[in-house]
Amino acid sequence: MSVPAAKVSSPASTTSSFSGLMTAPLEFLRRYASWSWLSIPSLLLAWILVATQFESYILPQPWEVLDEAWNEMLFPTQETVMDDDGNIVEIPEEERVTTWRLLSHGELVAAVQHFFRGEIWPHVGWSLLEEVGGFGAAIVFSLIFGFLAGFFKGFREYIVPLNGLFMAIPPIAWAPLMVIIFGLGYTTIVIVIFISAVNPMILTIMEGVLQIQGQEVRAARILGARRWQLLLYVYLPASLPFVTAALRIGFSQAWRALVAAEMIGASVGLGYMVQTAGEVGNSRLVLLGIAMIGLFSYIFERMLFRPIEKRYEVWRLT
């Protein structure tokens, strides 16, 4: 009885924190572990295993692709230089800049310059520009036509069959025709992207507007909302969930169509890069291109559009 309570409890608490330490990794696993952790490693493993069966120039290993990325994107080894007279001359082998080590200040500047001289950047840049053009136009059109179709029954009846028709045709099928009309290049690609993105976006927005029209509008009218107030205080906020959903769907449709279209109707861009690299048998560059395509898609879809969509989904539940 005379033993202070603190002394009794302290060994006990030591034990519990000790056992806590032992179970911590298990606890951590129980809480956070997910089978999704295995998906990408297993894909890599399969790649490595399959690649062992092939020559490196046919199916390179993942690290060889990384090496290619290093060369293409970051620090392409500079092989030529312009002399004082404006002639291109080859740099002797032993003087070429190798950046696979800590850099001095001068080398850092050179490295940054090389970084932007990486051969992949024009492809990435053009692809993104085309995406902005085609997807941007699709946003404007689908907002206008989607809302019109939602509000006016006549227009809806008119546009739905057209929509269905365009959705039934894979957008890439339009590419050869566009090449004939507009030639290789920006316009052709933008039009193909536009066709592929605008139709599902119009449908998504139209269906969203149709869903609003019932009860919420009635409730607002009973509470005294006039026409313009309905637009501002009901249709606008109520449309955010499906407008953001349409953006996400449209973006990914456009990106898919973009890559495919570039393989047919472009002279620059990620799709074109993959295509030409394939033709000359540079499988490393092909795989690098594929990885870049996936990466950009992931960045935009998962890190930009999906979170926006999620934000508005909260009050869409039930």
């Binding site: 919420e216 607002a220 009973i222 906020p237 109520a238 955010l240 009050w315 869409r316």
Partner: peptide, 13 residues
């Protein structure tokens, strides 16, 4: 005029 509907029909946003 006030009208309480059969369903609550609130504005979820």
């Amino acid at each position: 005029l006030g009208y309480v509907f059969q369903q609550p029909t609130l504005f979820p946003w």
